[in-house]
Computed example of a mutant assay.
Amino acid sequence: MADTYPVSAWAKLCLLALIWGSSFFLIKKGLLTFTALEVASIRLASAAAVLAPFALVRVRRIQRHQWPIILSVGLVGSMLPAFLFALAQTHVDSGITGALNALTPLFTLLIGAFIFRQWVTRRTLFGLLVGFIGTLTLVLVNASGTLSLNAYALFVVAATCCYGFNLNLIKAYLPDQTPLTITGVSLLMVLPVALLYLAGPSEVFAKLEGPTAWMSFSAVVALGVVGTALALILFNHLVQIGTTVFASSVTYLIPLVAMLLGSLDGEHIGVWQLLGMALILLGVGLANRKPTPNKV
C-alpha cells in the first residue's frame, strides 16, 4: 500500500479549505455595497498591505531570473482570479461558485501534463475524474434536480485555469523560495494596480457612508488579510511539501464549506448537491495518495 500524506498535511489542507470556502460568502457580503472591481481591489490592497513589511525585507532573496515568474504569480495567481471571482458572483450563488472552483485540480493536471511534462498516475487520474464528476453534479444540477448553468460561471472557469497554471509555475520555478516570500512579493508587485483603481475611478470612499458599507468593507478586508494573504502562504507551503495535485485538491473541499455557508444564508441544498459533495470527498481521497513509481 502506498504511503499517505501525514496528518499535519491533511490538517493544513482542511484549514485552507475552511478559509477559502468562506471567501465566497465574504465576496457575497462585499458585493452588497461595492462593485466587483472594487471588491477585488480592496481584497488585493489589504492582502498586499498586511504582507508588505515582510515582503520588503525579502525582495533581495529573489534572483534576477525569477522576477518574471514572481510577477506572473502575482498576476495569474492573485490579481486575475480576484477580479474574475468577484465578477462571477454578481450573478452566481456563492455555493455554486465554490463548487466551480473545484475545477482547479483538473486544470493543474492538464497544464502540468501538457506544458510542464509531469507524469500522472492512474490512481490520481481516476480520483480527479471522480471528483470532477461530483463537481459537474454540483454545477449542472440545481437544488430542484433540473439542469441549470449561468453563463457568468465561465469567469470562475477562467479563474481556475489561472490557478492551475500558477500552481505549476511555483512548483517548477520557485522551489527555493519560501511561501511568505512568494506570496508577499508577488502581491506587492500587483498592489499598484489595485491602488490606482481605488484612488481613481472607484467610488469606495463615497460608499462608506451607506448603511451596509462598513459590514461589506470589513468582509472584504477579512477576505484580503485572511482569505488571500495568509491563505496563499499556507497554500504555497502545501505546493512545496507535496504535489501540485495535492495542494490544488483543497478546491475539492472548498464547495463543502461554501455550500454550507450558502445554505445558512438562504441558499437551498438538495439531494443532488449532497451526492456531488460525496463524490468530491471520494475523489479527494483517491487522488491524494502519494504517487507510486508506476506511471502512465
Score class of each variant (00 low, 15 high):
T108P: 01
R43Q: 10
Y197T: 07
M277I: 14
A194K: 04
L167G: 14
V296A: 11
A88H: 01
L187P: 10
L31E: 00
W119E: 01
A159S: 15
A17G: 11
F114K: 04
L140I: 15
L31I: 13
L234M: 14
I115T: 05
I111D: 04
A287N: 06
L26E: 07
L140P: 02
L16M: 14
L253C: 07
Q63K: 15
V156G: 02
V39Q: 06
C14A: 15
F155H: 11
P68S: 12
I233A: 04
W214D: 09
L286R: 00
A206E: 14
A2M: 06
L230H: 05
L125N: 02
L180V: 14
V226N: 03
C161H: 00
G242H: 08
A47I: 08
A88S: 15
Q63L: 15
L138R: 01
T4S: 13
G262R: 00
T212V: 08
L37M: 08
S248L: 06
V50G: 05
A113E: 02
L282Y: 04
A222L: 15
T4D: 12
F246G: 02
P175W: 03
G266C: 03
R58T: 01
S249W: 06
A247P: 09
I62Q: 03
G95T: 12
A40V: 03
R43M: 00
T33K: 06
P211H: 12
V59D: 02
F116Y: 15
L84T: 07
L238G: 03
F24G: 05
P175K: 03
Y152F: 15
V185T: 09
V257E: 10
P293H: 12
A172E: 11
A88P: 13
S78R: 01
T4K: 10
A172H: 13
V245P: 01
A247K: 03
L275M: 07
L261S: 05
L234G: 13
R64S: 14
Y173K: 11
A206W: 08
V204W: 03
A11N: 08
F85C: 04
W10Q: 06
T33R: 07
G276D: 05
T228F: 10
A2R: 12
T181Y: 06
I233L: 04
